[in-house]
């Protein structure tokens, strides 16, 4: 589902170029639950941004399914993000003035789906994460775990090719963390390809495979 071929990325900050990613190769087959582990400064955020089509790269190729993600226009990048990817963030990023249901429906707005259909599909996905009873609540009225479940429903609502989760449990306590991991595993079991970026080994251990990133290179996997 994802194929990285010699991905290279250098930041030019001032006089000293910063070589962040040094020729990464990675293949993620469909339906895999992959963890990318690395300490801060390992290049893991940069890799996540490239995977999320939020940032470009200097060399190599990034294949997402049958689509080559390279030098895209802003419009094309927005379209790919919308149709191919689902994002789950550490700090949830729900719009505070929209209800849980409307938050889940938001990506469909950018696909031009009618309001009625949007809300119908959003309700379906909210039900899958067990939050049907909370659909009318604003994010401020939900617990951290509930917020992340809403965010997961939002990531799934467009039926993307890959779900990208950036420290999905970083803001949660241990009990809730396990709930979210169980939910991700269940979603994965239903066929969704998931890439989790984390620095916590007990999160990585629950994934089918883990690759370790260090100084811009993959150094071994589990």
């Amino acid at each position: 589902m994802i194929r990285l071929v010699g991905i290279d990325k250098t930041y030019r900050v001032g006089a000293h170029p910063l070589h962040v990613l040094k020729g990464l190769h990675l293949t993620v087959p469909p339906g895999e639950l992959l963890a990318i582990m690395g300490s801060s400064g390992s290049g893991k955020s940069t890799l996540l941004n490239i995977l999320g089509i939020l940032d470009g790269y200097d060399g190599g190729e990034y294949w997402l399914g049958d689509a080559l993600v390279k030098d895209l226009s802003e419009r094309k990048a927005a379209d790919y993000r919308n149709r191919f990817l689902g994002f789950v963030f550490q700090s949830f990023h729900l719009l505070p003035f929209k209800t849980a249901l409307e938050n889940v429906a938001l990506p469909l707005y950018y696909q031009g789906v009618s309001r009625k259909e949007r809300l119908r599909r959003a309700a379906e996905h909210l039900d899958q994460v067990g939050l049907s009873d909370w659909s009318g609540h604003l994010p401020g009225e939900l617990s951290g775990g509930q917020k992340q479940r809403v965010a997961i429903a939002r990531a799934l609502v467009t039926r993307p090719r890959v779900m990208l989760a950036d420290e999905p449990t970083g803001a949660l306590d241990s009990v809730t963390t396990q709930e979210i991991m169980d939910l991700l595993k269940r979603v994965n079991a239903e066929g969704m390809t998931i890439v989790v970026v984390t620095h916590e080994s007990d999160i990585a251990e629950q994934c089918a495979r883990t690759v370790f990133l260090k100084d811009g290179r993959f150094e071994g996997e589990r």
Partner: peptide, 16 residues
């Protein structure tokens, strides 16, 4: 800013 960033991640184009 955050809302706009999120909307972009979810597929909003700069024009939109």
């Amino acid at each position: 800013t955050q809302e706009i960033g999120l909307r972009k991640a979810l597929g909003a184009t700069p024009g939109s």
